[in-house]
Design a protein around this nucleic acid. Structure first.
Lengths: 248, 248
DNA sequence: GAAATAGTGTCTATCAGACATTATGGC
DNA sequence: GCCATAATGTCTGATAGACACTATTTC
């Protein structure tokens, strides 16, 4: 039994109970969708069709529709699948941005999700003029983005790099089957820095997250590489130490 | 010049531009405020004065008021100061929870902030019957909380512990001046595990975040301890390795 | 000097980085 | 055999944990 419920003298008056419909801020969900394409980290952008910022590139997203989505997460996932067609993306909530001046239409809050997908799994809806992959340059992209999306994108790039130091999430940027050199290359592309092969392999194998697949890959010249698959797609694993950015 | 702005054929129709006032979800800000009190991690709870969950204990917070707060962060800070009187709290955004069923009044999203304060800096507004510190037991508290606040609190406790492994935030649970044994004790209370004195001190001093204060503390028996002050209140520093929970 | 607590020194197993070496394919 | 790439082996410096030891106070 809940003892607090038996006390009769509750006097706390919460603002929670005083809000009227007109006081609600706008609430939207935006997505930062990363992939590796052409040896480069790229982010999915859409071109705004209407004011404000008509014609500018922006992160995909939009107002949450209470009648349609049961939760923020569901909303984010739906929009991600709509835009990319990806079935099993890596999706994680990043941060919520809200203020009176980030959108000229009024007080707006947006919860931003962070997604990683394999390039070959995506089938973009819409043409190149309205939806496209855009290469990252440092923490941003070349074109000027709508709203505060440049700052959001910078936060996302930062988050990606720091999570890469102690988690396995980079595997979600690769197709289901990949080689260790490919995985290492993915890290190097994001860190913009070469890593030591021996240390990298030790780290990955010790984490015990990959399983070998009998069969080899050859394509280019040189010795063929063993193909691996990410073992436990759900289990979150951490490296005991962080990857050093000072390598080689 | 922004090349994308010169393209005239934008056709992307964003849901962002279709929301009407009636479709907005409720939006609130809630706080998980931790302190160390009586050798125990405690969280600030308030008793709900009105339905839903009237009489139940809940995390402090309430609907965001667009006319009053310029941003989510400002709203969280204002409510924190209102409740505790603390001037320089550690405040960090944690996560946003939003769904159709977490509040019987309708679709609600809440952005939860995470605060650490020193016990002696707080002056609670309201009496013991409506606002009080509650000791944590594992990832929760004894009483049943309103809404999904038990799950939120568990997430916050988890976050606190994992951040403690690689950051200095525990200093914010202590008064401005403190000794190393006191700091170590704070870690031990939260981890619920003794730590090795030598390793702990090496770790803290190597991080170079504390400065000695000339003057000593004696109180109890035994050799007096050096008093320190947290050096750079803003700079975020990280330990090179995580604190092991296997210590001792 | 005994008790209690603060603070330091040292040993060792572990491990990341560096880099040399071997393995395996195509031509 | 040569080239290119994959994969493994080895050495070394750094460091966290363990624990013994010294230091400084009160009684």
């Amino acid at each position: 039994m809940n003892i607090s419920a038996t006390e009769p003298d509750a006097v706390e008056v919460s603002h929670r109970d005083q809000a009227s419909q007109s006081e609600k801020p706008f609430f939207s969900v935006d997505l930062v969708i990363f992939t590796i394409r052409e040896e480069c980290l790229q982010v999915l952008l859409v071109k705004r069709a209407e004011a404000p910022f008509k014609g500018r590139w922006a992160l995909p997203g939009g107002f949450l529709e209470p009648g349609r989505d049961d939760s923020i997460e569901v909303c984010a996932m739906r929009r991600l699948i709509e835009k990319t067609g990806v079935q099993t993306p890596y999706l994680e909530q990043m941060k919520t941005y809200g203020s009176c001046n980030r959108d000229p239409r009024g007080w707006t809050a947006t919860t931003v999700y962070f997604a990683l997908i394999a390039q070959d799994s995506a089938r973009l809806r819409g043409n190149q003029a309205t939806v496209r992959w855009t290469p990252m340059q440092g923490d941003g992209v070349k074109s000027e983005l709508a709203f505060d999306h440049a700052a959001i994108l910078a936060d996302a790039a930062d988050r990606l790099r720091s999570k890469l130091e102690y988690t396995h999430i980079a595997v979600h940027l690769l197709p289901e089957e990949f080689t260790l050199p490919e995985l290492q290359r993915t890290y190097e592309i994001i860190f913009q820095q070469p890593l030591d092969k021996s240390s990298f392999r030790r780290r990955v194998t010790q984490a015990d997250m990959l399983e070998e697949i009998s069969g080899k890959q050859r394509e280019g010249p040189g010795r063929p590489a063993q193909i691996y698959r990410f073992r436990d797609y759900d289990r979150r694993t951490f490296f005991p130490r962080s990857i050093s950015r000072h390598a080689r």
